[in-house]
Amino acid sequence: MISENEVERIAALARLKLNEKEKQKFQKELSLILDYVAQLNELPIENVSPTTSGIGAINIMRPDKKREEDNTEQVRAMLEQAPETKDGFLKVKAILKQE
């Protein structure tokens, strides 16, 4: 069974904050799901190659040029969706603290 501390650690990695009740609930539910998926351990898979994509993995290239879709109108519309902008840039909180 996955521990409550582990649930907390993983949630933090995923940038989620859980309250005490949620931690306990997730601990129980995630343990059930992990128990269920453990049935894959029954299968011998040493010589099987993994499926890594939905379609045979190939690189699709395009010329490194400005596309018609990338017009300033669309960029403006996208920036309008942001909660805080300054001079046409996204604004975020400072990540470096002053000593």
Binding site: E6, I10, A14, R15, L16
Partner: peptide, 22 residues
Amino acid sequence: YLQSRSEGFGDEVRRRIVLGTY
């Protein structure tokens, strides 16, 4: 991040995000 995501996502979405991250 923590506040926006915790308030914005519902139970099943958070469950799957935590499971996938694990």
